[in-house]
């Protein structure tokens, strides 16, 4: 049996140590404490989120021969196909405020950023399963790490667009200064939707499988590759789509077109902030329950 010598006893035991109590009660029963914990964890997670993001980005690009090109290969391919189809008269799209190839290219790039943001929470949480089941660390770090990675990939896309745009003869207006707001909005809405899907997506793999199909379907309901329709049933549906104002406004500000959907843009962003707070709470409440049920 190990012995304790007299001189090993610690002289100065710090009087207040952080106290953690685990009970079966739901955190919602004490909302003030829950909000304090949420903010504390968010702050505590910054560093870890940064390290995780650096880890993932380094690993991703170290292994890929084409490296950074992957950031825009898919939108580029998409664009070329649509330009071809439209030019060959197979598809007829309406008038676009800027040359069609540019319209499609910027649209698909922005849509790719949105998709990135939506996929990030579920992807990060699933990838961290081995850690989640065994170690206690602020879970917000996964979400913030996802946001950092989305920003990085978005940055590459935006950089390419900014380099390209002056050469295309498009008048860059003052809207460009507002573009970071639009980018933030894309990421905000995407993250909120992604977090909404995560708890159930962890338990049932159906969600992870259905998501790419759903996103593809949604792309055709948003003015990404075609302009806003003037009338008819399509106009109503596309008009009601909450993703429409944010994608369209982002593109407008980027390409110097006057933004027409600012009302919708503000409403959607406000709803997204409320949604984000709600799903953040759900994510925190759900984590111990998910960890119990998922394979480690």
């Amino acid at each position: 049996m190990p012995t304790r010598l007299a001189q090993d006893r610690p002289e100065d035991v710090p009087p207040d140590l952080p106290l953690t109590v685990y009970t079966p009660d739901s955190s919602l029963a004490s909302p003030a404490k829950m909000i304090r914990d949420m903010l504390r964890d968010l702050l505590a997670s910054r560093e870890l989120a940064w390290r995780l993001a650096v880890r993932d980005i380094s690993a991703q690009y170290r292994q890929a021969a084409l490296g950074i090109l992957w950031a825009f290969i898919l939108p580029l391919a998409n664009t070329l196909i649509w330009i071809f189809l439209s030019g060959a008269g197979v598809i007829k799209v309406g008038e676009t405020p800027i040359p069609y190839p540019l319209y499609v290219f910027t649209g698909t790039m922005l849509w790719a950023i949105l998709m990135d943001a939506i996929n990030a929470p579920l992807r990060q949480t699933i990838a961290a399963k081995p850690m989640l089941a065994k170690l206690n660390f602020p879970r917000e770090a996964l979400l913030v790490s996802g946001i950092y990675q989305t920003l990085f990939n978005a940055g590459i896309k935006i950089a390419l667009l900014l380099v390209m745009l002056p050469f295309t003869g498009v008048d860059l207006g003052w809207g460009l200064l507002l573009f970071p707001i639009a980018l933030a909005s894309l990421i905000l809405v995407g993250t909120a939707i992604g977090m909404l899907l995560t708890p159930v997506g962890i338990l049932y793999t159906d969600i992870g499988r259905a998501l790419p199909l759903l996103m593809q379907f949604l792309m055709y309901l948003t003015p990404v590759i075609f302009p806003m329709p003037k009338g008819g049933a399509a106009a109503i549906v596309i008009g009601l789509n909450p993703l429409t104002p944010i994608v369209v406004t982002a593109r407008d500000w980027l390409t110097g077109v006057s933004a027409e959907h600012l009302m919708g843009f503000s409403v959607v962003n406000l709803l997204a902030v409320l949604l984000l707070l709600g799903v953040w709470i759900v994510y925190r409440l759900a984590m111990p329950i998910l960890i119990e049920r998922m394979s480690s």
Binding site: L17, P24, L135, E292
Partner: peptide, 30 residues
């Protein structure tokens, strides 16, 4: 603190260190 108890109460004072999953967060490429 990974899962919730169904009854009772656990109280932990101080910083918790867990030697449970060594190498958590390792990425093989790095």
């Amino acid at each position: 603190g990974l899962i919730k108890p169904d009854a009772g109460r656990l109280t932990m004072r101080g910083r918790v260190g867990a030697l449970i999953a060594l190498g958590a967060g390792f990425n093989p490429i790095l």
